[in-house]
Nucleic acid binder design. Structure first.
Length: 430
RNA sequence: GCCCAGGUAGUGUAGUGGCCUAUCAUGAUUGCCUGUCACGCAAUCGACUCGGAUUCGAAUUCCGACCUGGGCGCCA
């Protein structure tokens, strides 16, 4: 019976392990093999004078990163990693690896991200990379658990859609039988329709597609969006949900992913403290004005430089609230007493934007007005507008970028590190 | 879409007109080595993205193509 490497201790006695040959150190009369599975690494020590003939033949033939099965006695050995080593009676090559390898799994020589992504299956054998995706899994688990515990209904909405309804971003056109169709940029409109359906609290974790030709360390053309929509809630209530969720997610990762955090050398991994500061947009602009040279005025979008400057000033997660209505989408609800600003917000990490959301316009006629004000044609929004005529409850929601959440949580330099197979302007394979 | 920087052994790099039969590390192959943990030692193998131009001479300069990294705008 195979035992996970992590579970092998000096008390194990005889053990069978299966894994990949991580490193080989042949000293002549004595050879060391580090064998790795997803749980850890163990040293296999072969004293050549005492080893069976079959073991000697196998260790002579084996190459790095081959899959091997090793059976033998476990000895306590202080000099060995993990305080134990396996002396093999059986050393079987299950499947040999070609050499040379497309990249160095041990990373004596670091590979560039592009090279790593080309050989992602090998790259992901590196414990450090595996740790990122183990944590990403825990993040998604924590978020799903939070939603289910708090009465949300998980939904899935179409990724193939007929029209560019949200405006703003570019969409990928696709051939759909004899019709033109697009990959959806956001589940926004469908979430809102489910408010009209009376679901009250919905969430979706799924792919979104943006055809923007950007070339940065924080953009992807296919990303994972964590989305919610809540009826009878305003922007403040969904911001509260968002900060609770962020805290709960960090806490879950801290509780359950200690090994991975250690592996990533995140000694100062800390759970952020709620409540996050609510920074009015107007104040954010003032901070940016003071700290950077480029001209900035009220009503501008917040540039990357401004985003970094404000982030440095704030130091931890914060919300930017009370945005000018003019620079937010038509579905953001203006304040009654000052319609020039609206009930929209962004959740910011000091490095970048993580989420944006708003209380939505739920009144049909106001929505038509706002669509027209943005220079869009309300007639092409009929499928979206229709539910607003049949008892649409007031509601609010947000979308949170899963990759950016993981990237900022683990202090990754590039958002591509947070996706197994990233899609960007240049990369469609693998 | 705009702007900048790049493409040299499997991997990561040095090399700014002749000293390049191209540096170093890692790797692979072979040999030696009984406590390695980036094991050590020795030998060997392995590369200038492609096409054109300039020049006596191009990895190096110029033009074009292809590929890549990053910044901006915009966004998650």
């Amino acid at each position: 019976m195979r035992i996970p490497i992590q579970s092998v201790t000096p008390a194990t006695g005889s053990a069978e392990i299966i894994g990949w040959v991580h490193e080989v150190r042949d000293l002549g009369g004595l050879a060391f093999f580090l064998i790795r599975d997803r749980t850890g690494i163990i040293q296999v020590t072969v004293p050549k004078k005492k080893a069976p003939e079959s073991v000697l033949a196998a260790i002579k033939a084996v190459s790095r990163e081959s899959v091997v099965r090793v059976i033998g006695n476990i000895k306590a050995m202080e000099k060995a990693p993990g305080g134990r080593e396996l002396v093999p009676d059986v050393f079987e090559i299950i499947n040999a690896s070609e050499s040379p390898l497309p990249l160095d799994v041990v990373e004596k020589v670091p590979a560039e991200l592009d090279t790593r992504l080309d050989a992602r299956f090998l790259d992901a054998r590196r414990p450090r990379v595996a740790a990122v995706f183990r944590i990403r899994s825990a993040v998604i688990h924590a978020i799903t658990a939070y939603f289910e515990k708090n009465g949300f209904t998980g939904i899935t909405t179409p990724k193939i859609v007929a029209a560019a309804t949200e405006g703003g971003t570019e969409l990928f056109p696709i051939a759909y039988f004899d019709k033109e169709a697009f990959l959806n940029q956001s589940p926004q409109l469908y979430k809102q329709m489910m408010m009209a359906a009376g679901f009250e609290k919905v969430y979706e974790i799924g792919p979104i597609f943006r055809a923007e030709e950007h070339n940065t360390t924080k953009h992807l053309n296919e990303a994972t969006s964590i989305d919610i929509e809540v009826s009878f809630a305003d922007h403040n209530e969904v911001m509260k949900i968002l900060e609770d969720l962020i805290v709960a997610t960090y806490a879950h990762v801290k509780d359950t992913c200690g090994d991975q955090i250690a592996n990533l050398e995140l000694a100062d991994f800390t759970v952020p403290k709620a409540p996050f500061t609510r920074l009015p947009y107007a104040d954010a602009i003032e901070i940016a004005k003071k700290k950077i040279d480029e001209p900035i005025k009220y009503g501008d979008d917040i540039s990357s430089a401004a985003e970094r400057a404000i982030g440095a000033e704030m130091g931890s997660h914060y919300f930017i609230v009370d945005w000018p209505t003019e620079i937010r989408p038509y579905y953001a609800m203006p304040y009654e007493d000052d319609p020039s600003i609206c009930r929209a917000f962004d959740l910011m990490h000091p490095r970048m934007e993580l989420s944006s959301g708003a209380q939505r316009v739920h009144q049909h006629d106001l929505l038509v007005q706002q669509i027209a004000k943005k220079g869009l044609n309300p007639e092409s929004f009929e499928f979206y507008l229709r539910p607003f005529r049949y008892g649409m409850p007031p509601h609010a929601g947000w979308g949170l970028g899963a990759e950016r959440l993981v990237m900022t949580m683990l202090n990754l330099g590039n958002v591509r590190e947070a996706v197994l197979f990233p899609r960007d302007m240049h990369r469609l394979v693998p």
